[in-house]
Design a protein around this nucleic acid. Structure first.
Lengths: 218, 218
DNA sequence: ATAAAAATTTAGATTAATCTAAATATAAAT
DNA sequence: ATTTATATTTAGATTAATCTAAATTTTTAT
Protein backbone atom coordinates (compact mmCIF):
# COMPACT_ATOMS: atom_id res chain seq x y z
CA UNK A 1 0.00 0.00 0.00
CA UNK A 2 1.13 3.47 -0.88
CA UNK A 3 0.63 6.29 1.58
CA UNK A 4 -0.65 9.77 0.87
CA UNK A 5 2.75 11.23 1.65
CA UNK A 6 4.48 8.85 -0.72
CA UNK A 7 2.03 9.84 -3.44
CA UNK A 8 2.81 13.50 -2.92
CA UNK A 9 6.54 12.92 -3.16
CA UNK A 10 6.12 10.84 -6.31
CA UNK A 11 4.01 13.51 -7.91
CA UNK A 12 6.53 16.23 -6.99
CA UNK A 13 9.42 14.22 -8.43
CA UNK A 14 7.45 13.62 -11.61
CA UNK A 15 6.69 17.28 -12.13
CA UNK A 16 10.22 18.38 -11.36
CA UNK A 17 11.55 15.73 -13.73
CA UNK A 18 9.46 17.18 -16.54
CA UNK A 19 11.16 20.58 -16.27
CA UNK A 20 13.90 19.35 -18.58
CA UNK A 21 16.20 18.16 -15.81
CA UNK A 22 16.84 14.44 -16.00
CA UNK A 23 17.74 13.85 -12.35
CA UNK A 24 15.80 15.54 -9.57
CA UNK A 25 17.70 16.82 -6.55
CA UNK A 26 16.80 16.86 -2.90
CA UNK A 27 16.48 20.58 -2.35
CA UNK A 28 14.14 21.02 -5.30
CA UNK A 29 11.79 18.46 -3.79
CA UNK A 30 12.05 20.07 -0.36
CA UNK A 31 11.19 23.43 -1.90
CA UNK A 32 8.28 22.01 -3.89
CA UNK A 33 6.78 20.24 -0.89
CA UNK A 34 7.61 22.94 1.63
CA UNK A 35 9.56 20.58 3.81
CA UNK A 36 13.15 20.06 4.93
CA UNK A 37 15.88 18.40 2.89
CA UNK A 38 16.46 15.82 5.60
CA UNK A 39 12.86 14.70 5.41
CA UNK A 40 13.23 14.34 1.68
CA UNK A 41 16.30 12.15 2.04
CA UNK A 42 14.41 9.84 4.36
CA UNK A 43 11.54 9.54 1.92
CA UNK A 44 13.79 9.00 -1.11
CA UNK A 45 15.30 5.99 0.62
CA UNK A 46 11.85 4.66 1.27
CA UNK A 47 10.64 5.23 -2.28
CA UNK A 48 13.76 3.49 -3.60
CA UNK A 49 13.20 0.58 -1.24
CA UNK A 50 9.63 0.21 -2.43
CA UNK A 51 10.68 0.27 -6.06
CA UNK A 52 9.10 3.59 -7.00
CA UNK A 53 12.37 5.47 -7.54
CA UNK A 54 16.03 5.05 -8.41
CA UNK A 55 18.03 6.99 -5.89
CA UNK A 56 21.76 7.48 -5.60
CA UNK A 57 23.10 9.24 -2.54
CA UNK A 58 24.17 12.79 -3.27
CA UNK A 59 23.31 12.28 -6.95
CA UNK A 60 19.56 12.72 -7.03
CA UNK A 61 16.51 10.65 -7.87
CA UNK A 62 14.46 9.40 -10.80
CA UNK A 63 11.12 7.64 -10.89
CA UNK A 64 11.08 4.01 -11.97
CA UNK A 65 8.52 2.90 -14.52
CA UNK A 66 6.22 1.96 -11.69
CA UNK A 67 6.77 5.32 -10.03
CA UNK A 68 5.90 7.10 -13.25
CA UNK A 69 2.74 5.06 -13.62
CA UNK A 70 1.66 6.09 -10.16
CA UNK A 71 2.45 9.74 -10.84
CA UNK A 72 0.46 9.72 -14.07
CA UNK A 73 -2.46 8.05 -12.31
CA UNK A 74 -2.53 10.81 -9.71
CA UNK A 75 -2.29 13.50 -12.38
CA UNK A 76 -5.14 11.87 -14.27
CA UNK A 77 -7.30 12.00 -11.17
CA UNK A 78 -6.30 15.55 -10.34
CA UNK A 79 -7.16 16.87 -13.78
CA UNK A 80 -10.43 14.97 -14.12
CA UNK A 81 -11.56 16.39 -10.79
CA UNK A 82 -10.59 19.87 -11.98
CA UNK A 83 -12.80 19.46 -15.02
CA UNK A 84 -15.62 18.25 -12.81
CA UNK A 85 -15.29 21.19 -10.46
CA UNK A 86 -15.31 23.76 -13.24
CA UNK A 87 -17.90 22.20 -15.54
CA UNK A 88 -20.35 20.77 -13.04
CA UNK A 89 -19.87 22.68 -9.81
CA UNK A 90 -19.19 26.13 -11.26
CA UNK A 91 -15.78 26.59 -9.74
CA UNK A 92 -13.63 29.20 -11.41
CA UNK A 93 -10.36 27.93 -12.80
CA UNK A 94 -8.31 29.55 -10.09
CA UNK A 95 -10.32 27.85 -7.32
CA UNK A 96 -9.93 24.22 -8.32
CA UNK A 97 -6.35 23.39 -7.53
CA UNK A 98 -6.50 23.10 -3.75
CA UNK A 99 -9.59 20.88 -3.73
CA UNK A 100 -8.29 18.70 -6.56
CA UNK A 101 -5.11 18.29 -4.52
CA UNK A 102 -7.20 16.37 -1.97
CA UNK A 103 -9.55 14.58 -4.36
CA UNK A 104 -6.65 13.18 -6.38
CA UNK A 105 -5.80 10.80 -3.54
CA UNK A 106 -9.16 9.03 -3.42
CA UNK A 107 -8.50 5.48 -4.49
CA UNK A 108 -11.25 3.84 -6.54
CA UNK A 109 -10.78 2.71 -10.12
CA UNK A 110 -14.49 2.65 -10.69
CA UNK A 111 -14.89 6.19 -9.38
CA UNK A 112 -12.34 7.59 -11.79
CA UNK A 113 -13.47 5.62 -14.81
CA UNK A 114 -17.08 6.61 -14.24
CA UNK A 115 -16.11 10.23 -13.64
CA UNK A 116 -14.12 10.17 -16.86
CA UNK A 117 -17.12 8.81 -18.76
CA UNK A 118 -19.50 11.25 -17.08
CA UNK A 119 -17.30 14.15 -18.20
CA UNK A 120 -17.22 12.63 -21.73
CA UNK A 121 -13.55 11.69 -21.61
CA UNK A 122 -12.06 15.18 -21.58
CA UNK A 123 -8.55 15.49 -23.00
CA UNK A 124 -7.52 18.68 -21.22
CA UNK A 125 -8.10 20.24 -17.83
CA UNK A 126 -9.31 23.81 -17.24
CA UNK A 127 -5.74 25.12 -17.45
CA UNK A 128 -5.11 23.40 -20.78
CA UNK A 129 -3.01 20.57 -19.39
CA UNK A 130 -3.55 17.14 -20.98
CA UNK A 131 -5.43 14.42 -19.11
CA UNK A 132 -3.85 10.95 -19.32
CA UNK A 133 -6.24 8.16 -20.35
CA UNK A 134 -6.78 4.89 -18.39
CA UNK A 135 -3.53 3.51 -19.76
CA UNK A 136 -1.54 6.60 -18.91
CA UNK A 137 -1.23 7.86 -22.47
CA UNK A 138 -1.59 11.52 -23.31
CA UNK A 139 -0.20 13.86 -25.90
CA UNK A 140 0.95 17.36 -25.18
CA UNK A 141 -0.28 19.61 -27.99
CA UNK A 142 2.64 21.62 -29.27
CA UNK A 143 2.11 25.02 -27.81
CA UNK A 144 4.06 28.23 -27.68
CA UNK A 145 4.04 31.21 -25.38
CA UNK A 146 2.35 34.38 -26.58
CA UNK A 147 5.74 36.07 -26.17
CA UNK A 148 7.13 33.76 -28.88
CA UNK A 149 4.22 34.09 -31.29
CA UNK A 150 4.47 35.49 -34.81
CA UNK A 151 3.01 38.83 -35.89
CA UNK A 152 -0.29 38.74 -37.74
CA UNK A 153 -0.92 35.05 -37.15
CA UNK A 154 -4.09 33.65 -35.66
CA UNK A 155 -3.84 31.56 -32.46
CA UNK A 156 -6.01 29.83 -29.92
CA UNK A 157 -5.42 30.01 -26.16
CA UNK A 158 -4.64 26.49 -24.90
CA UNK A 159 -3.19 26.91 -21.45
CA UNK A 160 -1.34 28.93 -18.84
CA UNK A 161 2.09 28.62 -17.29
CA UNK A 162 1.41 30.68 -14.18
CA UNK A 163 -1.64 29.23 -12.40
CA UNK A 164 -1.87 31.83 -9.64
CA UNK A 165 -5.27 33.32 -8.82
CA UNK A 166 -3.92 36.75 -9.68
CA UNK A 167 -3.11 35.73 -13.24
CA UNK A 168 -6.22 33.62 -13.80
CA UNK A 169 -8.41 36.43 -12.54
CA UNK A 170 -6.64 38.84 -14.84
CA UNK A 171 -7.44 36.57 -17.77
CA UNK A 172 -11.07 36.24 -16.72
CA UNK A 173 -11.39 40.00 -16.43
CA UNK A 174 -10.03 40.33 -19.97
CA UNK A 175 -12.30 37.57 -21.31
CA UNK A 176 -9.39 35.33 -22.16
CA UNK A 177 -10.30 31.68 -21.63
CA UNK A 178 -9.29 28.29 -23.04
CA UNK A 179 -10.26 28.24 -26.69
CA UNK A 180 -10.33 32.02 -27.09
CA UNK A 181 -8.99 33.11 -30.47
CA UNK A 182 -6.14 35.59 -30.46
CA UNK A 183 -4.48 37.52 -33.29
CA UNK A 184 -1.08 39.05 -32.66
CA UNK A 185 -1.20 42.65 -33.86
CA UNK A 186 1.93 44.35 -32.58
CA UNK A 187 5.04 43.70 -30.50
CA UNK A 188 6.35 46.77 -28.75
CA UNK A 189 10.17 46.62 -28.74
CA UNK A 190 10.48 49.12 -25.91
CA UNK A 191 8.86 47.04 -23.12
CA UNK A 192 8.00 43.78 -24.91
CA UNK A 193 4.30 44.48 -24.41
CA UNK A 194 2.02 42.96 -27.03
CA UNK A 195 -1.13 44.19 -28.68
CA UNK A 196 -3.63 41.44 -29.48
CA UNK A 197 -7.15 41.12 -30.80
CA UNK A 198 -9.57 38.96 -28.79
CA UNK A 199 -13.26 38.70 -29.49
CA UNK A 200 -12.94 41.57 -31.95
CA UNK A 201 -11.54 43.77 -29.19
CA UNK A 202 -7.97 45.08 -29.13
CA UNK A 203 -5.98 45.09 -25.92
CA UNK A 204 -2.36 45.43 -24.94
CA UNK A 205 -0.83 42.99 -22.49
CA UNK A 206 2.47 43.17 -20.63
CA UNK A 207 5.52 41.00 -21.25
CA UNK A 208 4.70 39.22 -18.01
CA UNK A 209 1.31 38.15 -19.36
CA UNK A 210 2.80 37.20 -22.73
CA UNK A 211 5.26 34.88 -21.04
CA UNK A 212 2.57 32.95 -19.22
CA UNK A 213 -0.07 32.35 -21.86
CA UNK A 214 0.18 29.26 -24.06
CA UNK A 215 -1.16 29.33 -27.62
CA UNK A 216 -1.44 26.99 -30.54
CA UNK A 217 -1.75 27.94 -34.20
CA UNK A 218 -5.15 27.49 -35.81
CA UNK B 1 -7.15 21.32 12.92
CA UNK B 2 -8.95 18.05 13.14
CA UNK B 3 -7.29 14.90 11.86
CA UNK B 4 -8.84 12.18 9.73
CA UNK B 5 -8.61 9.74 12.60
CA UNK B 6 -10.34 12.12 14.97
CA UNK B 7 -13.12 12.55 12.44
CA UNK B 8 -13.60 8.81 12.21
CA UNK B 9 -13.82 8.44 15.96
CA UNK B 10 -16.30 11.31 16.22
CA UNK B 11 -18.47 9.78 13.52
CA UNK B 12 -18.38 6.38 15.21
CA UNK B 13 -19.35 7.86 18.57
CA UNK B 14 -22.18 9.77 16.93
CA UNK B 15 -23.61 6.69 15.26
CA UNK B 16 -23.28 4.55 18.35
CA UNK B 17 -24.92 7.27 20.41
CA UNK B 18 -27.94 7.18 18.11
CA UNK B 19 -28.64 3.52 18.86
CA UNK B 20 -30.65 4.58 21.89
CA UNK B 21 -27.74 4.38 24.31
CA UNK B 22 -26.98 7.69 25.92
CA UNK B 23 -23.34 7.05 26.83
CA UNK B 24 -21.03 5.26 24.42
CA UNK B 25 -18.52 2.81 25.81
CA UNK B 26 -14.97 2.03 24.82
CA UNK B 27 -15.40 -1.50 23.52
CA UNK B 28 -18.26 -0.52 21.24
CA UNK B 29 -16.06 2.07 19.59
CA UNK B 30 -13.17 -0.37 19.31
CA UNK B 31 -15.50 -2.87 17.67
CA UNK B 32 -16.93 -0.27 15.28
CA UNK B 33 -13.53 0.98 14.23
CA UNK B 34 -11.82 -2.41 14.24
CA UNK B 35 -9.18 -1.28 16.66
CA UNK B 36 -8.09 -2.03 20.23
CA UNK B 37 -9.74 -0.68 23.35
CA UNK B 38 -6.49 0.86 24.51
CA UNK B 39 -6.24 2.89 21.33
CA UNK B 40 -9.78 4.11 21.89
CA UNK B 41 -8.97 5.24 25.41
CA UNK B 42 -6.06 7.30 24.11
CA UNK B 43 -8.22 8.95 21.50
CA UNK B 44 -11.08 9.66 23.91
CA UNK B 45 -8.70 11.61 26.11
CA UNK B 46 -7.59 13.58 23.10
CA UNK B 47 -11.12 14.29 21.91
CA UNK B 48 -12.05 15.45 25.40
CA UNK B 49 -9.00 17.68 25.55
CA UNK B 50 -9.92 19.26 22.24
CA UNK B 51 -13.48 19.88 23.35
CA UNK B 52 -15.18 17.45 21.00
CA UNK B 53 -16.32 14.99 23.68
CA UNK B 54 -17.17 14.66 27.35
CA UNK B 55 -15.34 11.69 28.68
CA UNK B 56 -15.32 10.18 32.14
CA UNK B 57 -12.88 7.40 32.88
CA UNK B 58 -14.54 3.99 33.01
CA UNK B 59 -17.92 5.66 32.42
CA UNK B 60 -17.98 6.25 28.69
CA UNK B 61 -18.13 9.18 26.33
CA UNK B 62 -20.56 11.65 24.78
CA UNK B 63 -20.06 14.18 22.04
CA UNK B 64 -20.16 17.85 22.98
CA UNK B 65 -22.23 20.20 20.89
CA UNK B 66 -19.19 20.94 18.80
CA UNK B 67 -18.47 17.24 18.41
CA UNK B 68 -22.01 16.65 17.22
CA UNK B 69 -21.70 19.47 14.71
CA UNK B 70 -18.60 17.89 13.28
CA UNK B 71 -20.25 14.47 13.12
CA UNK B 72 -23.28 15.85 11.31
CA UNK B 73 -21.04 17.70 8.89
CA UNK B 74 -19.26 14.48 7.99
CA UNK B 75 -22.54 12.61 7.61
CA UNK B 76 -23.85 15.36 5.35
CA UNK B 77 -20.82 15.01 3.14
CA UNK B 78 -20.98 11.21 3.14
CA UNK B 79 -24.61 11.11 2.09
CA UNK B 80 -24.31 13.82 -0.55
CA UNK B 81 -21.44 11.93 -2.15
CA UNK B 82 -23.51 8.75 -2.06
CA UNK B 83 -26.27 10.49 -3.98
CA UNK B 84 -23.72 11.78 -6.47
CA UNK B 85 -22.22 8.34 -7.00
CA UNK B 86 -25.58 6.68 -7.59
CA UNK B 87 -27.29 9.40 -9.60
CA UNK B 88 -24.44 10.72 -11.68
CA UNK B 89 -21.82 7.98 -11.82
CA UNK B 90 -24.15 4.96 -12.03
CA UNK B 91 -22.92 3.25 -8.91
CA UNK B 92 -25.27 0.69 -7.46
CA UNK B 93 -26.41 1.39 -3.92
CA UNK B 94 -24.28 -1.34 -2.46
CA UNK B 95 -21.10 0.05 -4.05
CA UNK B 96 -21.15 3.57 -2.70
CA UNK B 97 -20.30 3.21 0.94
CA UNK B 98 -16.56 2.54 0.75
CA UNK B 99 -15.85 5.39 -1.65
CA UNK B 100 -18.07 7.82 0.27
CA UNK B 101 -16.11 6.85 3.36
CA UNK B 102 -13.07 8.51 1.78
CA UNK B 103 -14.83 11.40 0.06
CA UNK B 104 -16.51 12.47 3.29
CA UNK B 105 -13.19 13.73 4.63
CA UNK B 106 -12.48 16.22 1.84
CA UNK B 107 -12.62 19.63 3.44
CA UNK B 108 -14.08 22.39 1.30
CA UNK B 109 -17.25 24.25 2.16
CA UNK B 110 -17.66 25.43 -1.39
CA UNK B 111 -17.28 21.91 -2.73
CA UNK B 112 -20.08 20.57 -0.57
CA UNK B 113 -22.43 23.48 -1.04
CA UNK B 114 -22.02 23.36 -4.80
CA UNK B 115 -22.41 19.58 -4.82
CA UNK B 116 -25.58 19.96 -2.78
CA UNK B 117 -26.95 22.49 -5.26
CA UNK B 118 -25.86 20.40 -8.25
CA UNK B 119 -27.79 17.43 -6.85
CA UNK B 120 -30.80 19.73 -6.26
CA UNK B 121 -30.59 19.62 -2.47
CA UNK B 122 -31.52 15.98 -1.94
CA UNK B 123 -33.08 15.16 1.42
CA UNK B 124 -32.23 11.46 1.54
CA UNK B 125 -29.34 9.29 0.44
CA UNK B 126 -29.67 6.12 -1.68
CA UNK B 127 -30.34 4.03 1.44
CA UNK B 128 -33.10 6.32 2.61
CA UNK B 129 -31.10 8.06 5.32
CA UNK B 130 -31.74 11.79 5.74
CA UNK B 131 -29.15 14.32 4.57
CA UNK B 132 -28.52 17.20 7.00
CA UNK B 133 -28.69 20.68 5.46
CA UNK B 134 -25.94 23.34 5.72
CA UNK B 135 -27.02 24.14 9.25
CA UNK B 136 -27.07 20.53 10.35
CA UNK B 137 -30.85 20.21 10.43
CA UNK B 138 -32.59 17.13 9.19
CA UNK B 139 -35.73 15.25 10.02
CA UNK B 140 -35.99 11.51 10.21
CA UNK B 141 -39.23 10.43 8.55
CA UNK B 142 -41.08 8.13 10.90
CA UNK B 143 -40.54 4.74 9.44
CA UNK B 144 -41.30 1.20 10.48
CA UNK B 145 -39.86 -2.15 9.60
CA UNK B 146 -41.78 -4.36 7.18
CA UNK B 147 -41.92 -6.92 9.97
CA UNK B 148 -43.98 -4.46 12.03
CA UNK B 149 -46.31 -3.37 9.24
CA UNK B 150 -50.07 -3.85 9.23
CA UNK B 151 -51.92 -6.30 7.01
CA UNK B 152 -53.58 -4.87 3.91
CA UNK B 153 -52.04 -1.43 4.25
CA UNK B 154 -50.13 0.33 1.51
CA UNK B 155 -46.54 1.41 2.18
CA UNK B 156 -43.58 2.91 0.45
CA UNK B 157 -40.02 1.66 0.82
CA UNK B 158 -37.90 4.40 2.44
CA UNK B 159 -34.72 2.74 3.60
CA UNK B 160 -32.78 -0.29 4.75
CA UNK B 161 -31.32 -1.31 8.07
CA UNK B 162 -28.83 -3.84 6.76
CA UNK B 163 -26.65 -2.15 4.13
CA UNK B 164 -24.64 -5.21 3.11
CA UNK B 165 -24.14 -5.91 -0.57
CA UNK B 166 -25.89 -9.24 -0.15
CA UNK B 167 -29.08 -7.57 1.04
CA UNK B 168 -28.99 -4.66 -1.38
CA UNK B 169 -28.42 -7.02 -4.29
CA UNK B 170 -31.32 -9.13 -3.12
CA UNK B 171 -33.54 -6.06 -3.19
CA UNK B 172 -32.33 -5.07 -6.63
CA UNK B 173 -33.00 -8.56 -7.94
CA UNK B 174 -36.54 -8.32 -6.58
CA UNK B 175 -37.07 -4.82 -7.99
CA UNK B 176 -37.40 -3.28 -4.57
CA UNK B 177 -35.93 0.22 -4.52
CA UNK B 178 -36.43 3.46 -2.59
CA UNK B 179 -39.92 4.71 -3.36
CA UNK B 180 -41.28 1.33 -4.41
CA UNK B 181 -44.88 0.81 -3.27
CA UNK B 182 -45.57 -2.24 -1.19
CA UNK B 183 -48.84 -3.76 0.02
CA UNK B 184 -48.73 -6.23 2.85
CA UNK B 185 -50.81 -9.25 1.83
CA UNK B 186 -50.11 -11.99 4.35
CA UNK B 187 -48.05 -12.75 7.44
CA UNK B 188 -47.16 -16.41 7.84
CA UNK B 189 -47.24 -17.29 11.56
CA UNK B 190 -45.14 -20.42 11.07
CA UNK B 191 -41.86 -18.75 9.95
CA UNK B 192 -42.74 -15.03 10.06
CA UNK B 193 -42.34 -14.83 6.29
CA UNK B 194 -44.40 -12.15 4.61
CA UNK B 195 -46.22 -12.01 1.30
CA UNK B 196 -46.20 -8.60 -0.36
CA UNK B 197 -47.28 -7.02 -3.61
CA UNK B 198 -44.72 -4.89 -5.45
CA UNK B 199 -45.21 -3.50 -8.92
CA UNK B 200 -48.33 -5.63 -9.23
CA UNK B 201 -46.28 -8.75 -8.61
CA UNK B 202 -46.66 -10.92 -5.50
CA UNK B 203 -43.62 -12.28 -3.72
CA UNK B 204 -42.87 -13.81 -0.35
CA UNK B 205 -39.92 -12.55 1.68
CA UNK B 206 -38.28 -14.07 4.74
CA UNK B 207 -38.42 -12.72 8.27
CA UNK B 208 -34.82 -11.66 7.82
CA UNK B 209 -35.75 -9.43 4.90
CA UNK B 210 -38.80 -8.08 6.72
CA UNK B 211 -36.64 -7.03 9.63
CA UNK B 212 -34.30 -4.97 7.47
CA UNK B 213 -36.62 -3.04 5.20
CA UNK B 214 -37.96 0.33 6.33
CA UNK B 215 -41.38 1.54 5.16
CA UNK B 216 -43.58 4.54 5.62
CA UNK B 217 -47.36 4.67 5.22
CA UNK B 218 -48.69 6.38 2.11
C1' DA C 1 -20.79 -9.44 50.34
C1' DT C 2 -17.28 -11.48 48.14
C1' DA C 3 -15.32 -13.76 44.21
C1' DA C 4 -15.03 -14.13 39.32
C1' DA C 5 -15.64 -12.09 34.89
C1' DA C 6 -15.70 -8.33 31.86
C1' DA C 7 -14.47 -3.74 30.66
C1' DT C 8 -11.30 -0.20 30.79
C1' DT C 9 -7.08 2.12 31.55
C1' DT C 10 -1.98 2.60 32.07
C1' DA C 11 2.77 1.71 30.97
C1' DG C 12 5.93 1.03 27.69
C1' DA C 13 7.02 -0.05 22.55
C1' DT C 14 6.52 0.63 17.63
C1' DT C 15 5.88 2.91 13.03
C1' DA C 16 5.51 6.78 9.78
C1' DA C 17 6.65 11.25 9.03
C1' DT C 18 8.78 14.95 10.47
C1' DC C 19 12.37 18.13 12.57
C1' DT C 20 17.13 20.30 14.27
C1' DA C 21 21.85 20.22 14.42
C1' DA C 22 26.02 18.13 13.21
C1' DA C 23 28.70 15.68 9.80
C1' DT C 24 29.96 14.69 5.18
C1' DA C 25 30.13 15.10 0.23
C1' DT C 26 30.07 17.80 -3.99
C1' DA C 27 30.59 22.04 -6.60
C1' DA C 28 32.48 26.62 -7.20
C1' DA C 29 36.01 30.01 -6.62
C1' DT C 30 40.32 31.68 -6.13
C1' DA D 1 44.91 22.48 -5.72
C1' DT D 2 43.13 24.24 -1.76
C1' DT D 3 39.68 26.74 0.31
C1' DT D 4 34.96 28.17 0.64
C1' DA D 5 30.29 27.61 -0.17
C1' DT D 6 26.44 24.76 -1.12
C1' DA D 7 23.97 20.52 -1.08
C1' DT D 8 22.99 16.39 1.10
C1' DT D 9 22.95 12.98 4.52
C1' DT D 10 23.14 11.10 9.30
C1' DA D 11 22.10 10.98 14.14
C1' DG D 12 18.99 11.63 17.47
C1' DA D 13 14.30 13.70 18.99
C1' DT D 14 9.37 14.49 18.47
C1' DT D 15 4.39 13.71 17.40
C1' DA D 16 0.26 11.04 16.15
C1' DA D 17 -1.67 6.76 16.14
C1' DT D 18 -1.29 2.38 17.17
C1' DC D 19 -0.23 -2.04 19.77
C1' DT D 20 0.66 -5.72 23.77
C1' DA D 21 0.62 -6.88 28.32
C1' DA D 22 -0.16 -5.70 32.91
C1' DA D 23 -2.92 -3.21 36.26
C1' DT D 24 -7.17 -1.35 37.71
C1' DT D 25 -12.09 -0.53 37.95
C1' DT D 26 -16.78 -1.91 37.31
C1' DT D 27 -20.22 -5.36 36.76
C1' DT D 28 -22.13 -9.85 37.41
C1' DA D 29 -22.86 -14.02 39.74
C1' DT D 30 -23.06 -16.79 43.53
Amino acid sequence: MITLTEENYIKAIYHLGKQGVETVNTNAIAEALQTKASSVTDMLKKLAEKGYADYIKYQGVNLTLEGKKIAIGIIRKHRLWEVFLVEKLNFKWDEVHQVAEDLEHIKSEKLIDQLDAYLKHPTHDPHGDPIPDRDGNFKQIEKILLSQATLGKKYQCVGVKDTSSAFLNYLDANTIALGTEIVLLHKEPFDQSIKIKINSREITVSQNVAKNLFLKTV
